[in-house]
């Protein structure tokens, strides 16, 4: 009885995630697809919260919904004449599509069947944020710094690409 509420929430979130993920792919309106992607990201964040992984969950909201989706919507709106345009793909490869979907489903099903789902008995870490911070500065300091350098390179790259050549600054 005590497990009923999390299960109901889990199934609800699952339905939202699957339906919105499907609508991202099936929908013809680019803006709607981006919105459904946002709903999907939020439902994933919900799963993290359900698993007591609140730091990962809030980072999901921060990075994906607050950052990526907003950038995506921004990009859609910057595209000329995007309002009320229905995107129709000109390429239709039915045979290949059906084949790849069957292979994918078979692969996923076999993975699902072979995996032994072990539910960890460990209690969720309390105060995850300070734990993560300590690990970043001790055990994982090298990957952390490498990622920082990578991000810096991406930033500089963006500036170089965006800058107009030959224009006096």
């Amino acid at each position: 009885m005590s497990n009923l509420a999390p299960q109901v929430i889990f199934i609800g979130l699952g339905v939202i995630a699957v339906v919105s993920a499907l609508l991202v792919v099936v929908g013809r309106n680019l803006f709607h697809a981006a919105m459904f992607l946002g709903a999907y990201m939020l439902s994933i964040a919900g799963f993290y919260f359900l698993l007591d992984a609140d730091l990962v969950g809030i980072m999901q909201v921060f990075v994906y919904v607050g950052g990526v989706i907003v950038m995506l919507l921004f990009g859609v709106m910057l595209t000329a004449q995007m309002t009320n345009v229905r995107m129709v793909s000109a390429v239709k490869q039915r045979g290949g599509t059906v084949l790849s979907v069957i292979v994918l489903v078979a692969l996923l099903a076999s993975i699902f069947k072979k995996t032994a789902f072990v539910i960890s008995q460990a209690t969720p870490a309390q105060n995850a944020i300070s734990l993560v911070g300590k690990l970043f500065m001790t055990d994982y300091v090298l990957p952390f710094e490498v990622v920082s350098v990578l991000l810096l390179a991406a930033l500089i790259g963006a500036i170089v690409v965006a800058r107009e050549e030959g224009r006096p600054q």
């Binding site: 803006f31 919105m35 946002g38 609140d54 730091l55 809030i58 980072m59 909201v61 921060f62 919904v65 607050g66 950052g67 989706i69 907003v70 919507l73 921004f74 859609v76 709106m77 309002t83 009320n84 309390q126 105060n127 995850a128 944020i129």
Partner: peptide, 28 residues
């Protein structure tokens, strides 16, 4: 009183940007 309250207080309002973009796009 979340352990990550500060990040939460910064992250959740950023969803509001999506609302503003929706208003701009939806109004035509």
């Amino acid at each position: 009183d979340l352990n990550i309250g500060l990040i939460y207080a910064l992250a959740i309002p950023s969803i509001g940007v999506a609302g503003i973009i929706m208003a701009g796009f939806g109004s035509y």
